[in-house]
Write a protein that binds this DNA or RNA. Sequence first.
DNA 1: ATGGGTTTAGAATGATAGTTCTAGAATATG
DNA 2: CATATTCTAGAACTATCATTCTAAACCCAT
Lengths: 205, 205
Amino acid sequence: MGQAKFSQTDFLAAAQAIAAAEGPAAATIASITARLGAPTGSFYHRFASRNVVLGELWLRAVRDFQEGIGAALDAGDGLAAALHTPAWVRGHLDNARLLLMYDRKDFVQGEWPEELRERVAEMTRRMEAGSRQRARAIFGEDGREEVRLAQFLISEVPVAAVRQHLVRREPPPPLVDRLIRTTYRAVVADYRARKRKPGLAERAV
Amino acid sequence: MGQAKFSQTDFLAAAQAIAAAEGPAAATIASITARLGAPTGSFYHRFASRNVVLGELWLRAVRDFQEGIGAALDAGDGLAAALHTPAWVRGHLDNARLLLMYDRKDFVQGEWPEELRERVAEMTRRMEAGSRQRARAIFGEDGREEVRLAQFLISEVPVAAVRQHLVRREPPPPLVDRLIRTTYRAVVADYRARKRKPGLAERAV
DNA sequence: ATGGGTTTAGAATGATAGTTCTAGAATATG
DNA sequence: CATATTCTAGAACTATCATTCTAAACCCAT
């Protein structure tokens, strides 16, 4: 057997570094191998395609991100789950930029490579289960409306509040947490009020 | 003079249609000219580069979008400005998708073409002035914090609430308006409460 | 009618990237 | 020590695009 100067991990790390610094599009085979001083041949000994490497980066970032939210929800606390986003972003600026500033399509062009299909499917399943879990944790039900509200509170609002800071490569200030918290409480309160007196709440809107 | 089978407007319309249907990246010179049955040469008689056409599309979408917000604010109503986003999206699904689902860099690669620089600069100026105007309209001041909150209420939250519906090419349901409204009122109320009794509000967080 | 512009028409060019190929070097195993 | 296997090395190939170029068609003003 040969000597293995360049490992899978080396290529992944190089790709991650380049993607974090200049965006996933900049992680070309040429730039990845150049950073390691490796020949392109070595790259293709480790990976079937560029899609595999960039898909792997994306999957890792998503998994890292989701884990914390899941943990917060297992504790039954929706607000903690909502506040997980700014907290995670502060501790993982690079991965956060990858995940929240770019689209999945900036990583994987066309179809997912066969090697990753199963993991993506698993991830999707987990996320769908998670969205109902979130609705139950916050509202006690997981009907269509509750799921939609939970997505707003736990995903949409926190991500939106954090984005401009990611663009500037700065940690989100405490004000961001306050906005998320205020929004969370208001939407939950509004939901409960509407449940209690649908007619009144309707008119009040 | 020749006969002019293909006008600037034709090319722009074709590019718009393709970009709206399949994303700006799909609006290549080949796809634009193919849609019209025009030769590539004719395209370059009308435009200096692809960047000019796609930059033009982006500028038009931004302008359309901003106009309504500006009008709402001139009436001094921050909530109306916040609710402009879902309303505009319902009436301009195609432009909304272009503007809210893609990044500026998906339209213009590298530098802006000289022909559009002035208009982009003007647009930037207008948006910066607008952000202070929004802060004043809502909070009566335009300090750093007020500007940040206004951006959250008028831009970040509405856009976030609307995005998943754009992806599905469906008009945002009324629930989206309710979320925006609830958030708006809560954040403004929280701001005012904090202004009145800073100590108390601080502890309450 | 014709000269000269504009426009059509599409082939040629050049750049960038992903992927494949051929050759040679290194090494663990028999 | 021989050799099969893996890996390095980088050139070659292929595809996709934006852009430029050459030639011919067209039509208005003279």
